[in-house]
């Protein structure tokens, strides 16, 4: 336990407060604006990628949970759907990403690719479950669409994570 804590403290990355506020807001803004110019951009989920990144960087499941909660509620506020749908999804993904960040090396691009792919698929499953079980709405599941979406997001996530690495504060 003591060893894990020291490793966690050693690999925990820090960001400025401005980064923690501006980056999520920018991701939500781009997610809302870019589909106007590029209709296929709706396939990408930038806010979720940002949640995953900050969760694995902070390596704190509670921080990851609340980070996911805030970004998810902001995403929900832009839709006409009940508040909390993206909140629940992002909370769970943030929690899991932070938990994984404690155990494996998440700075490796290959690991990031796999991690993003799995998290995006998990996010889709959670979304369908929430719509069907909580809201009683019929949402169809298309395997091919979800796989393509996960692959695209995983690739974009690798690039995005590399860019966000530059915003880390040096110890």
């Amino acid at each position: 336990m003591a060893m894990q804590s020291s490793r966690r403290e050693m690999e925990e990355h820090h960001f400025s407060l401005w980064t923690l506020i501006a980056v999520p807001l920018l991701s939500v803004f781009l997610q809302a604006y870019l589909p106007l110019r590029f209709p296929h951009f709706g396939l990408v989920d930038l806010p979720v990628l940002v949640v995953i990144y900050f969760a694995v960087s902070r390596r704190s499941p509670i921080a990851g949970t609340f980070f996911g909660l805030v970004i998810g509620i902001i995403q929900d506020a832009l839709t006409h759907l009940p508040l909390g749908i993206h909140g629940i999804i992002n909370c769970i993904l943030g929690y899991l990403a932070a938990s994984i960040g404690l155990r494996i090396d998440v700075d490796n691009p290959g690991t990031r690719l796999m991690m993003n792919f799995v998290f995006m698929l998990l996010g889709s499953v959670l979304q369908v479950l929430i719509f069907r079980r909580l809201l009683g709405m019929h949402v169809e599941w298309f395997w091919l669409h979800e796989l393509i979406r996960a692959v695209v997001n995983a690739l974009i996530g690798v690039i995005l994570f590399a860019l966000l690495d530059r915003l880390r504060q040096r110890e």
Partner: peptide, 15 residues
């Protein structure tokens, strides 16, 4: 003018 979207395909709204 249309200035934004909801950002998700599950909600077809524009701003």
């Amino acid at each position: 003018h249309v200035i934004g979207t909801s950002g998700t395909d599950l909600s077809r709204v524009l701003y």
